[in-house]
Amino acid sequence: MYAYWETVPTRWKDNDVYGHVNNAVHYSMMDTVINSWLIRAAGLDVHDGDVIGLCVESHCVYRSSVSFPEPVRVGLRVGHLGRSSVRYELGLFREDGETVVAEGHFVHVFVDRGTRRPAEIPGPLRKAMEELAVTG
């Protein structure tokens, strides 16, 4: 289902007055996992690379709650890969790996760092994305 997994710790400040991780933190976790994968596994140079990925769309559906200090298991896959855009799909799970906390997606459009005009996703980055692509 998900080709890449990362565990994200919750923090004391993530809990809201209702005693569970606030909804905005889910987006932060998704963004963190996507970008750590882009840097570590796909080789994106966020400081000096020719292209950067800009988030143009995001969505999250909340399924169950989680609270500090429980870590969250985040699964990542690529649902659609275009010429200059990619749709990442993510699942956030409780520590047991079975209970879904949230499901969401992010769409990045890759742009030229200087002009901010859409740019083709470079070969090595595209290859890494293809390895996370949903098949069938």
Rank of each mutant, 00 (worst) to 15 (best):
M1I: 09
Y2Q: 14
Y2M: 14
Y4A: 11
W5V: 04
E6P: 05
E6S: 12
V8D: 03
P9M: 02
R11P: 11
W12H: 13
W12R: 02
K13H: 15
K13I: 14
K13E: 14
V17P: 14
V17K: 13
H20M: 11
V21P: 10
N22A: 15
N22H: 15
N23R: 07
A24Y: 07
V25N: 13
Y27N: 12
S28L: 14
M29E: 01
M29K: 04
M30K: 05
D31G: 06
T32K: 03
T32M: 13
V33R: 02
S36C: 07
W37V: 00
A42K: 05
D45L: 02
V46L: 13
V46M: 14
H47G: 07
H47F: 09
D50E: 12
V51F: 00
V51P: 04
V51L: 02
I52L: 13
G53A: 06
L54F: 15
H59V: 00
V61H: 12
V61I: 11
Y62T: 05
R63F: 02
S64K: 07
S67F: 08
S67M: 05
F68I: 07
F68A: 08
P69E: 11
V72G: 03
V74G: 02
L76G: 05
R77K: 14
V78N: 08
H80P: 01
H80A: 15
L81R: 08
G82N: 02
G82R: 01
R83S: 14
S84M: 04
V86Y: 00
L90K: 00
L90H: 01
L92V: 01
E95G: 02
D96V: 11
D96F: 06
G97V: 10
G97S: 08
E98L: 10
E98G: 00
T99M: 01
V100H: 00
A102R: 11
E103M: 06
E103H: 06
G104Y: 03
F106H: 13
H108K: 03
H108A: 08
F110N: 06
R113V: 06
G114A: 14
T115M: 03
R117K: 12
R117F: 00
P118C: 08
P122T: 02
P124F: 00
P124H: 04
K127T: 15
K127Y: 11
K127Q: 15
A128Q: 05
A128Y: 02
E130N: 04
E130F: 09
E130A: 05
V134Q: 15
V134M: 12
T135N: 13
T135P: 11
T135K: 15
T135Y: 07
